[in-house]
Protein backbone atom coordinates (compact mmCIF):
# COMPACT_ATOMS: atom_id res chain seq x y z
CA UNK A 1 0.00 0.00 0.00
CA UNK A 2 1.45 3.33 -1.07
CA UNK A 3 0.45 6.34 1.01
CA UNK A 4 -0.53 9.44 -0.94
CA UNK A 5 2.41 11.68 -1.79
CA UNK A 6 4.93 9.42 -0.12
CA UNK A 7 7.71 9.25 -2.66
CA UNK A 8 9.77 6.09 -2.91
CA UNK A 9 13.12 6.12 -4.74
CA UNK A 10 15.37 3.28 -5.85
CA UNK A 11 18.57 3.21 -7.86
CA UNK A 12 20.52 0.57 -9.78
CA UNK A 13 23.85 1.12 -11.50
CA UNK A 14 25.05 -1.45 -14.04
CA UNK A 15 27.74 -1.77 -16.70
CA UNK A 16 26.62 -1.67 -20.33
CA UNK A 17 26.59 -5.41 -20.94
CA UNK A 18 23.55 -7.33 -22.20
CA UNK A 19 24.43 -9.80 -19.47
CA UNK A 20 22.95 -7.29 -17.00
CA UNK A 21 19.53 -7.01 -18.66
CA UNK A 22 18.07 -9.76 -16.47
CA UNK A 23 19.16 -7.85 -13.35
CA UNK A 24 17.66 -4.62 -14.72
CA UNK A 25 14.35 -6.40 -15.35
CA UNK A 26 14.29 -7.87 -11.84
CA UNK A 27 14.99 -4.45 -10.28
CA UNK A 28 12.20 -2.91 -12.37
CA UNK A 29 9.78 -5.73 -11.57
CA UNK A 30 10.18 -5.30 -7.81
CA UNK A 31 9.57 -1.56 -7.91
CA UNK A 32 6.62 -1.81 -10.32
CA UNK A 33 5.00 -4.51 -8.19
CA UNK A 34 5.53 -2.46 -5.06
CA UNK A 35 3.76 0.47 -6.66
CA UNK A 36 0.65 -1.65 -7.10
CA UNK A 37 0.38 -1.97 -10.88
CA UNK A 38 -1.46 -5.02 -12.21
CA UNK A 39 0.74 -7.78 -13.61
CA UNK A 40 0.09 -6.81 -17.23
CA UNK A 41 1.29 -3.25 -16.64
CA UNK A 42 4.31 -4.51 -14.69
CA UNK A 43 5.23 -6.55 -17.78
CA UNK A 44 4.93 -3.51 -20.04
CA UNK A 45 7.17 -1.39 -17.78
CA UNK A 46 9.80 -4.14 -17.58
CA UNK A 47 9.91 -4.45 -21.38
CA UNK A 48 10.16 -0.66 -21.86
CA UNK A 49 13.13 -0.45 -19.46
CA UNK A 50 14.80 -3.44 -21.15
CA UNK A 51 14.39 -1.74 -24.56
CA UNK A 52 15.83 1.54 -23.27
CA UNK A 53 18.89 -0.20 -21.78
CA UNK A 54 19.35 -2.38 -24.88
CA UNK A 55 19.37 0.77 -27.02
CA UNK A 56 21.99 2.35 -24.74
CA UNK A 57 24.21 -0.75 -24.91
CA UNK A 58 23.89 -0.97 -28.71
CA UNK A 59 23.91 2.68 -29.78
CA UNK A 60 25.36 4.84 -26.97
CA UNK A 61 28.14 2.42 -25.99
CA UNK A 62 28.36 0.38 -29.25
CA UNK A 63 28.48 -2.88 -27.25
CA UNK A 64 31.47 -1.77 -25.15
CA UNK A 65 30.71 -3.42 -21.77
CA UNK A 66 32.50 -0.76 -19.67
CA UNK A 67 29.91 2.02 -19.97
CA UNK A 68 27.79 3.08 -17.03
CA UNK A 69 23.99 2.96 -16.92
CA UNK A 70 22.18 4.55 -13.96
CA UNK A 71 18.55 3.56 -13.50
CA UNK A 72 16.53 5.54 -10.95
CA UNK A 73 12.91 4.78 -10.17
CA UNK A 74 10.64 7.19 -8.30
CA UNK A 75 7.01 6.64 -7.53
CA UNK A 76 4.15 7.73 -5.35
CA UNK A 77 0.43 7.06 -5.48
CA UNK A 78 -0.03 8.83 -8.83
CA UNK A 79 3.09 8.50 -10.97
CA UNK A 80 5.79 5.91 -11.66
CA UNK A 81 8.85 7.40 -13.30
CA UNK A 82 12.09 5.74 -14.46
CA UNK A 83 15.15 7.79 -15.33
CA UNK A 84 17.92 6.03 -17.28
CA UNK A 85 21.20 7.90 -17.70
CA UNK A 86 24.25 7.02 -19.81
CA UNK A 87 27.50 8.74 -20.76
CA UNK A 88 27.74 7.37 -24.28
CA UNK A 89 27.08 8.70 -27.76
CA UNK A 90 24.16 11.12 -27.93
CA UNK A 91 20.99 9.67 -29.35
CA UNK A 92 18.26 11.65 -31.06
CA UNK A 93 15.06 9.63 -31.12
CA UNK A 94 13.46 12.06 -33.55
CA UNK A 95 15.71 10.71 -36.29
CA UNK A 96 14.22 7.25 -35.82
CA UNK A 97 11.16 6.88 -38.06
CA UNK A 98 8.14 5.00 -36.78
CA UNK A 99 8.49 1.49 -38.15
CA UNK A 100 6.11 0.05 -40.67
CA UNK A 101 6.27 -3.71 -40.33
CA UNK A 102 5.66 -4.38 -44.02
CA UNK A 103 8.46 -1.98 -45.03
CA UNK A 104 10.69 -3.66 -42.47
CA UNK A 105 10.00 -7.01 -44.01
CA UNK A 106 10.86 -5.82 -47.52
CA UNK A 107 14.08 -4.15 -46.46
CA UNK A 108 15.14 -6.88 -44.04
CA UNK A 109 15.55 -4.13 -41.50
CA UNK A 110 15.73 -5.41 -37.96
CA UNK A 111 16.53 -2.40 -35.77
CA UNK A 112 14.44 0.49 -34.47
CA UNK A 113 11.65 -1.59 -33.03
CA UNK A 114 12.70 -0.86 -29.45
CA UNK A 115 11.92 2.84 -29.35
CA UNK A 116 8.57 2.25 -31.01
CA UNK A 117 7.72 -0.37 -28.37
CA UNK A 118 8.77 1.98 -25.54
CA UNK A 119 6.37 4.65 -26.80
CA UNK A 120 3.56 2.12 -27.14
CA UNK A 121 4.12 0.61 -23.70
CA UNK A 122 4.56 3.77 -21.62
CA UNK A 123 2.44 6.90 -21.12
CA UNK A 124 5.39 9.21 -21.76
CA UNK A 125 8.96 8.86 -23.10
CA UNK A 126 11.31 11.86 -22.98
CA UNK A 127 14.89 12.09 -24.20
CA UNK A 128 17.24 14.87 -23.14
CA UNK A 129 20.89 15.81 -22.69
CA UNK A 130 21.73 16.68 -19.08
CA UNK A 131 24.67 18.18 -17.18
CA UNK A 132 28.02 16.59 -17.95
CA UNK A 133 26.93 15.78 -21.52
CA UNK A 134 25.01 12.76 -20.31
CA UNK A 135 21.96 11.32 -22.01
CA UNK A 136 18.76 10.79 -20.09
CA UNK A 137 15.57 9.03 -21.02
CA UNK A 138 12.59 9.28 -18.70
CA UNK A 139 9.84 6.69 -18.93
CA UNK A 140 6.53 7.47 -17.21
CA UNK A 141 3.48 5.41 -16.32
CA UNK A 142 0.58 6.97 -14.45
CA UNK A 143 -1.14 5.12 -11.64
CA UNK A 144 -4.88 5.44 -12.03
CA UNK A 145 -7.35 4.37 -9.41
Amino acid sequence: MIYPNKKIEKELIVKSSTDNLAQVREFTRKAAEESGFPEETVGKIILAVDEACTNIIKHAYKYSPEGKIVISIKFDSTIFSISIIDEGIHFNPNTVPEPNIVEYYKKKKIGGLGIFLMKKLMDDVKYSTITGNKNQVILVKYLTQ
Binding site: L21, R25, L47, D50, E51, T54, Y104, Y105, K108, K109, I110, G111, L113, G114, L117
Partner: peptide, 16 residues
Amino acid sequence: KYISSAGLGVFMAYVE
Protein backbone atom coordinates in the same frame (compact mmCIF):
# COMPACT_ATOMS: atom_id res chain seq x y z
CA LYS B 1 8.26 -16.35 -20.75
CA TYR B 2 9.58 -13.12 -22.18
CA ILE B 3 10.58 -11.53 -25.48
CA SER B 4 12.06 -8.12 -26.32
CA SER B 5 12.54 -6.49 -29.72
CA ALA B 6 15.96 -8.15 -30.02
CA GLY B 7 14.17 -11.50 -30.15
CA LEU B 8 11.54 -10.24 -32.58
CA GLY B 9 14.33 -8.97 -34.82
CA VAL B 10 15.70 -12.50 -35.26
CA PHE B 11 12.46 -13.64 -36.91
CA MET B 12 12.46 -10.53 -39.12
CA ALA B 13 16.02 -11.28 -40.19
CA TYR B 14 15.41 -14.84 -41.40
CA VAL B 15 11.81 -15.06 -42.60
CA GLU B 16 12.37 -13.75 -46.09
